[in-house]
Amino acid sequence: MAEVLVLVEHADGEIKKVTNELLTLARTLGEPSAVLLGGSVASLAEKLGEYGAQKVYVAESADLDDYLVAPKAEVLAQIVADTSPTAVLVASSAEGKEVAARAALRSGSGLITDAVGVSSDGETTQGIFGGAIAVQAKVTKGIPFITVRPNSTAAEPASGAAEVVTVTPNISDAAKGAKVTERVVEAKGGRPDLAEAAVVVSGGRGLGGAEHFDLIEKLADSLDAAVGASRAATDAGWYPHQNQVGQTGKTVSPQLYIAVGISGAIQHRAGMQTSKTIVAINKDPEAPIFELADFGMVGDLFDVVPQLTDEITKRK
């Protein structure tokens, strides 16, 4: 069966959930092989067999961590040239898209980003304009490089041989131009990634100030959810920019999205309207967010949210 490459997304020695989703998806297209790149990553190879990876191409070099994106793209393109896969699947993360784009260019191939589905003939489904239009598309030149959004497929375990194929990375001097000198963690740990989270709780202008975001955080923690914020809230400096959900921020598609004190301007809707279930809490019954909501609560968030957090904690 034709080989499908999946670029493994990993951080701090852990494989990201999206990789298991991509391996699950790859099984519908052909025989999945994982591509594992990094300074010291070989120990992760075995785990990839749990989601059906038949082979794991392992390329280790400190340069893959020490320089931004370009070395990973070169090595991915090198493995693509050696294996001529049917398709290359990469997570639609910021770095995933960058690596995929450069590797696709090096391979003389086309690129589709942000797919939410890929059919067995390589046809992709994407939502564009903030999910307002669904597009079916395909790569028409070279090998399809497709980046896939987290939460697009449910990861299903399957046993794979995870046979390790060690690759000697050929990294050019040109790829060692942008040196990573420091990695700084600012956000409080413990909450899931916004893009990958199954539940997202977001706060907006209705909170009235940074000090009230603890209401959102407590509700989020009761649901093991990620915290998002509307642009009004991030522009006001109430919550970090990287948590912004919307047209110019993150696009999320969780099982459950709870919008608190968010009016639901187009800017925000573009980032969340493909969520499976949407709950809105807002005191303005005319707020456009209620047009999207599966369940809307018209009321003062300062009354509703603490009660909701208590109820969830009680019932779990």
């Binding site: 669904a134 019954p285 047009e291 809307g296 018209v298 009354d303």
Partner: peptide, 29 residues
């Protein structure tokens, strides 16, 4: 290097249930 084959506007979300808070809003959610 890529082509769009088809596109369809996403059907609007069907309106859900909208409830007014009467002191038990959190419980209702």
């Amino acid at each position: 290097t890529s082509q769009v084959d088809e596109f369809t506007p996403r059907p609007p979300r069907s309106g859900g249930e909208i409830v007014k808070n009467e002191g038990d809003g959190g419980t209702k959610v």
